[in-house]
């Protein structure tokens, strides 16, 4: 494996982080991603804000690449699958259906996030498997909101975690990270039209940064 992936152990399972802001569980051929915010560009356009097209399809292509690279058979989306409850018949739903049709064997599990409140269990029910709140998957508890659980190691999203790296003087870069806390991992947001919120990690937390097509282990003071 090159620089674009990084192996680590979570809950006794060997896992892989991919530079495309995704977590893979090779033993179960499962791909975990968080905060796809599908159709966000279109929601903006419907409201008269002129952002360009392309993001939705580009994100699905990135998932395609991950499926091929890691022989993925199941995708678990940790919330905020759609950016907003679809009004009418927006094109991104069709784009997603078309994409889904090309992956017949793939399981697609969505744990509903706050952006999915209204769409969960109502839209796209024929092509995705909606789960509300929590879903158990081996030693993992898949959720949208970060938390700890007696039932297992939590995989979550929601925060779009970002840290600021400092160079010399005023130079800095904001980079998305995977934030590992005790009993809980917070995945970075996968969608390309998503911002991020800076986090305040505790001393023992581990951070993995995603930048310049690589995964970087962020050294922490111990």
């Amino acid at each position: 494996m090159g620089d674009d992936t990084l192996s680590l152990m979570l809950a006794g399972e060997s896992m892989v982080l991919d530079a495309q802001r995704a977590l893979i569980w090779p033993a179960q051929r499962t791909l975990f991603i968080a905060d796809l915010h599908l159709g966000k560009d279109e929601v903006f356009r419907q409201s008269g804000i002129a952002v360009p097209e392309g993001g939705t399809l580009a994100d699905l292509r990135r998932i395609d690449a991950l499926i091929v690279a890691h022989a993925v058979e199941r995708i678990v989306l940790l919330g905020d699958f759609l950016h907003a409850a679809p009004r009418g018949a927006p094109r991104y739903l069709q784009t997603f259906r078309d994409w889904r049709a090309t992956h017949g064997d793939l399981a697609f599990v969505v744990v509903a996030g706050n952006h999915d409140r209204r769409a969960a269990g109502r839209d796209l029910t024929d092509v995705v498997q909606w789960q509300s709140n929590e879903w158990l998957c081996g030693p993992f508890v898949c959720r949208h909101l970060p938390a700890t659980s007696p039932q297992g190691f939590v995989l979550s999203g929601h925060l779009h975690p970002v840290i600021k790296l400092h160079g010399s003087h005023r130079e800095r870069a904001r980079v998305p990270v995977c934030w590992l806390r005790a009993g809980c991992a917070v995945l970075p947001s996968f969608g390309s039209f998503t911002g991020g919120g800076e986090i305040a990690p505790a001393q023992d937390d581990e951070l993995y940064a995603f930048a310049a097509n690589r995964v970087w282990r962020v050294p922490r003071r111990s």
């Binding site: 400092h166 160079g167 940064a209 962020v218 050294p219 111990s222």
Partner: peptide, 17 residues
């Protein structure tokens, strides 16, 4: 390149750690 810059920032953290 962006990669070189990130590398430099990560190295800096490494030294500090």
């Amino acid at each position: 390149s962006f990669q070189e810059r990130i590398q430099r920032m990560i190295d800096r953290l490494e030294r500090r750690a």
